[in-house]
Simulated scan of single mutants.
Amino acid sequence: MDTDVAALRTLSDTGDFTDTLRVRASVGLRTFVAGALGWAPGWLRFLYWTRGVFARMLRTAHPVVRPGSGGMRPEDVPFTPGRRIGFFSVVEGVEDHHLLLAASDSHLAAYLAIVADGDDRYRMVTVIRYLHWTGRLYFLVIRPFHWLVVRGMARAGARGRWNT
């Protein structure tokens, strides 16, 4: 399977931070995405609440972020550009291949790609672009939690659970 995603390559080349997590999962892309984006344990909800407080302290515009996709089912995962999944917007999607999502605040833009690499392998790629000096400071503070969050999302996606 061709694993090249041109838009992701462009973002990675111009991003300020790029991170990739590889995971094995014997579920389809839709199920993986629904599980990953629907994952919302209590500590993660608290972390996003704390993020909102910190963003207000920096006086940055920020959307209210509530992790979890509201129990989205795999068949409800959109691949159409402009459609929403939680606080993300779909940038690009190809059924059974990849889904590229974006979320933007006044201080940074974040991109998440979930790519099916075949043979039950997935890549979760995060790209961050700083839009203002506060974006760099903001991400410096939240970066230690980034790996925990993405790893938890990957595990939930691999389990194929979308109502957790």
Rank of each mutant, 00 (worst) to 15 (best):
G15Y: 14
V65N: 08
T80I: 06
P41F: 06
V94Q: 02
P81Y: 03
M72C: 06
G68V: 06
L11I: 12
F139V: 10
R45Q: 12
L8N: 05
R66F: 08
G118P: 01
L131A: 10
H97P: 02
H62F: 14
R22F: 13
L44G: 14
V64P: 01
R56S: 15
R56D: 12
A109V: 04
G86E: 09
E75G: 08
V33Y: 01
D19N: 10
Y111T: 09
R121W: 04
F46T: 11
A55F: 10
V94F: 04
R30C: 05
I128S: 08
P81C: 02
A102Q: 15
T134G: 15
M72G: 14
A61F: 03
I128N: 12
H62Y: 11
V90W: 02
R66H: 13
Y122E: 07
R121D: 08
Y138Q: 07
A36N: 12
E75H: 12
L131F: 13
R9M: 05
A102P: 01
V33E: 00
V127N: 07
A113I: 13
T60A: 14
T50E: 07
Y111H: 15
A103Y: 06
D13H: 15
A61M: 06
F139A: 09
S104R: 15
L131G: 14
L101Y: 03
V23C: 05
T134I: 03
L8F: 11
L8W: 03
V125F: 00
L131N: 13
W49M: 05
G71A: 01
Y122P: 02
R59H: 14
A116M: 02
P81R: 08
L58A: 11
A34K: 04
I85C: 09
T18L: 05
F32P: 07
F46Y: 11
E75Y: 00
G93E: 04
S106G: 11
T14Q: 15
R24L: 07
F139K: 09
M57R: 13
A109F: 08
V53N: 02
D120N: 04
H62G: 04
D105H: 12
H107Y: 12
V115L: 13
D19E: 15
L21G: 10
V23H: 10
